[in-house]
């Protein structure tokens, strides 16, 4: 038999009833590789206002609590630049990713 043109991601017998998905699979697709620029925070300027966190369409920022800043998860950050643009202290710079 020739190899099928498309490799199936699941066999017929392995599919869940009703073709359902479960939340545990939600972070499987890493969208960080879409990025051409990445946010870099200057913590000296950061006033911990949270705008980067509130306005991120991908929800990649995490509140670092006691350390009083928000950390971007580069596995998922697509590099849209909203965080840098909205930052009232201009504490985030979008830096070119190296290929």
């Amino acid at each position: 038999m020739t190899k099928p043109a498309v490799e199936a991601i699941a066999k017929v017998g392995d599919l869940p009833l009703g073709f359902i998905g479960r939340p545990k699979r939600s972070r499987a697709a890493k969208t960080g590789d879409w990025r051409s620029v990445r946010p870099v925070l200057d913590r000296a300027r950061c006033n911990y206002c949270g705008f980067c966190y509130f306005y991120c369409p991908d929800g990649v920022f995490q509140d670092m609590g006691e350390e009083k800043y928000y950390q971007a998860d580069l596995d998922y950050c697509k590099g849209c630049g909203i965080c840098a643009h909205e930052c009232p202290k201009k504490a985030i710079a979008m830096i070119q990713e190296e290929v």
Binding site: V6, A8, I9, A10, V12, G18, F19, I20, R22, P23
Partner: peptide, 23 residues
């Protein structure tokens, strides 16, 4: 016990999903 129903099937799984229904 949350599940997601009505997911999108790209070409790499649509045929399998339809065959499962046929069976």
């Amino acid at each position: 016990d949350p599940i997601s129903m009505g997911l999108w099937a790209p070409p790499d799984v649509y045929a399998e999903a339809r065959k499962a229904m046929a069976l």
